[in-house]
């Protein structure tokens, strides 16, 4: 690509980013503020942003996990929950809560809403942006809370932290398990796949596109291109100009996608433990199949929902029992980089 073409491309990306940001500002109107505790936010606090719907079962552990890691304030958009999630969140002393009945899909799967909040409250903070079924872990997370991590990243000159989304699943049919709210999901979802991930680099954004894991082998074996995207950039030192382009998979400006070393070395990275496959997934999938609020072309994913509703068993003889971050680090699913 010539220099002129590069400039044009860069301008195009900028325009796209600006349009999306403008759209996010418009979409702020869809949010109704329920509880505002944002005055409690202090300059170096780590913030967490999340959109959710009916996550009453996951929330107790979710809040506990991130509080233990050092998140100081939660900014949450509730998308029409009917299971008491909203009431539970409103009572938490470190949660600010917004509510909307609008379409999740129309708001770019909730990202437009979060984008507006990030712009207003996230600027200058390290911000965790995750779903309610994603638990961030990283090397040494039990002894070094998020402020230790972000101090280190800042000293390294980094403003982003990448993670692989790792699907956890139980041994036996999904629906045959029992989960009690407040329980660590990895006690029920005990297994994961260690080494069936494929990576390509997207030429336009330089972002990595990681796919694979149990969902790819069990549900998308014949249409691997539809397999879930597992690249995530859940922790960013936010600037109001930044934009999550596509869920938390890709960021703009494009240089923020360089969560990897391309000269052979390893950067520090983490894992998002994905607790999608708790027993409630099959009931939720039945609902989602009809709501059409997920995926760009929801009809293509009807077989996927059907498979989930049936309560499949994702376990295979080579599934690995989850034992903690040291194991994930040794297996190369995350890396300590130079953080010894």
């Amino acid at each position: 690509m010539g220099p002129a073409a590069q400039i044009i491309q860069a301008l195009n990306w900028r325009r796209r980013r600006q349009q999306r940001l403008a759209r996010a500002l418009r979409k702020r109107r869809e949010l109704a503020l329920l509880v505002n505790r944002t005055e409690a936010i202090r300059p170096r606090d780590i913030l967490l942003f999340c959109t959710l719907r009916n996550e009453a079962a996951r929330l107790p552990y979710f809040l506990r996990h991130y509080r233990a890691l050092g998140v100081r304030h939660f900014l949450i958009v509730d998308n029409a929950s009917t299971d008491g999630s909203r009431e539970m969140l409103a009572e938490q002393p470190d949660v600010s809560l917004w509510h909307t009945q609008a379409s999740y899909r129309e708001a770019r799967f909730g990202m437009d809403w979060l984008q507006g909040l990030l712009m207003k409250y996230g600027h200058g903070h390290w911000c965790v942006t995750v779903d309610a079924d994603e638990l961030l872990i990283y090397p040494h997370h039990l002894t070094r809370p998020l402020p230790a991590l972000t101090d280190w990243l800042e000293a390294e000159g980094e403003s982003v932290f990448g993670a692989l989304m790792l699907d956890l699943y139980p041994k036996g049919p999904i629906t045959a398990q029992r989960y009690t709210p407040g329980q660590d999901p990895s006690e029920v979802l005990t297994h994961y796949d260690t080494g069936n991930y494929t990576i390509t680099r997207k030429p336009d954004t330089q972002a990595l596109w990681i796919q694979g894991g149990p969902r790819s082998r069990a549900f998308f074996a014949d249409t691997p291109q539809r397999g879930p995207t597992l690249t995530k950039i859940p922790l960013v030192k936010w600037h109001w100009r930044y934009l999550y382009l596509n869920s938390t998979h890709t960021l703009l400006p494009r240089h923020l996608n360089r969560i990897y070393d391309d000269a052979g070395g390893e950067k520090l990275s983490g894992v998002l433990l994905h607790s999608k496959f708790l027993p409630e997934v099959s009931a939720k999938s039945a609902e989602e199949k009809h709501r059409h609020e997920h995926f760009g072309a929801p009809k293509d994913f009807a077989p996927y929902y059907d498979a989930l509703v049936a309560g499949p068993d994702l376990w295979a003889p080579h599934s690995t029992l989850y034992r903690g971050w040291q194991q994930l680090e040794a297996e190369g699913l995350m890396s300590r980089g130079g953080w010894g």
């Binding site: 990576i199 990897y260 890396s335 130079g338």
Partner: peptide, 24 residues
């Protein structure tokens, strides 16, 4: 050891934070 992992990485590993270009 940590520094070596940061600079050289683990041979044969391709992951979210290590994706070397060809011949690196």
């Amino acid at each position: 050891r940590a520094t070596l992992q940061r600079i050289r990485g683990r041979a044969g590993l391709y992951m979210a934070s290590r994706f070397p270009v060809k011949n690196r």
